[in-house]
Amino acid sequence: MSRKPRSSASPLQAKLIAGLWRVLASCRLGLLWRLARIAGPLVHRFSRREREVTEINLAEVYPEQSDAERRHLARHSLAHSTATMLELGFAWMAEPGRVERSILDVHGRDLLDDARTEGRGVIVLAPHFGNWEVLNFWLSSHFPFTAMYEPPKIAALDPVIRHGRERMGASLVPTNPRGVASLLKALKRSEAVGILPDQEPDWGSGVFAPFYGRLAYTATLLPKLVARTQARVVTGVAQRVPGRGFVIHFLEADPRVYETDETASAAGVNACVEAAIALEPAQYQWEYKRYRKVIEELQGHPDHPSFRLY
């Protein structure tokens, strides 16, 4: 797996960013949500890239909605994405008791408990919905938990982010074969591991599978892990209750995720993401170019209807 190029940002810039996170960590969630509601429409208006990708994605997955409905959803989605960014300091640096109290309820915990009682590991598919850093906090507070980690573009922020994600006991492993080996070992110990199911992998590490009826390049790591460990798969999200906190949901996975055929399993993974999004579509990070590699495949075929995406 390739790594992101590191940024040339100065140590001072990194300190300023970390300092801002510490300030935001001391703020109430109600204030952070009010700031997000102010900033979200500004992002929609002035950030062309986020606005256009969000609106194109929404047009593809919700063609039955009117343009006005999709614009409203896009503005609301960007407000939630902004809230997630503002809440990073809270998830990583706020006093643990505050973060724990912000988790108002947990649905579906029995899916994890039952699997571990049976001596099975648990693979948590954690899409970019709500606040996935709060989900990481809860999982690592309550279970032995391992997740893949790719260092940030700004190298000087790496120890800050790593500390925030590991502070409740999570084990972070690299996004390479050594990291995959660590996930396998954790699952064989009947522990929980986290996987991001909605990031496009590098070429050679995925297959094309339907996502809202359109092909999207999807990682094939999951069937490899299931085949070697017989782990249970669940989808996990931390849904934001604006200004108040979060409700964590663990959802039963689509049964296709257990298929040995990689394309069938990937279709099940995408169905799991769709089920999570259905909880509240505005809380999904629609500004991610989920269909990018399809477009790369279509280069040279500008008459294809998908070519206009992005």
Rank of each mutant, 00 (worst) to 15 (best):
S8I: 08
P11N: 01
L12R: 02
W21C: 03
R22Y: 00
V23S: 03
C27D: 04
L32G: 06
W33Y: 09
R34S: 11
A39Y: 11
G40A: 05
P41M: 03
E50S: 10
T54R: 04
I56T: 14
P63S: 02
Q65N: 15
S66V: 09
R71Y: 03
A74R: 08
A74D: 00
L78Q: 12
S81K: 00
S81P: 06
A83G: 08
T84A: 12
M85W: 14
L86K: 00
M93Y: 04
A94N: 04
A94H: 07
E100M: 15
L104A: 04
V106P: 13
H107V: 05
R109Y: 08
E118Q: 13
G119K: 08
G119D: 08
G121S: 09
L125F: 02
F129C: 11
F129Q: 03
G130E: 10
V134T: 09
L135W: 01
N136H: 14
N136V: 14
F137N: 03
W138T: 02
W138C: 02
F143G: 03
F145C: 10
T146I: 11
Y149E: 01
M168E: 10
M168N: 12
V173Q: 08
T175Y: 07
P177K: 07
P177T: 07
L183A: 09
L184G: 06
L184I: 11
K188N: 12
G194W: 13
L196M: 11
D198T: 03
Q199C: 03
Q199I: 03
G204E: 05
S205F: 10
Y212L: 08
R214E: 11
Y217K: 04
L222C: 01
L222D: 02
V226L: 04
V226A: 01
Q230F: 12
G236E: 04
R240L: 12
R240S: 14
P242S: 10
G243R: 00
I248W: 05
F250Y: 07
L251K: 04
V257S: 05
T260L: 04
E262M: 10
E274C: 08
L279G: 07
A282I: 04
Q283M: 05
Q285C: 13
K293M: 14
V294A: 14
I295C: 06
H301E: 15
H304K: 05
R308D: 06
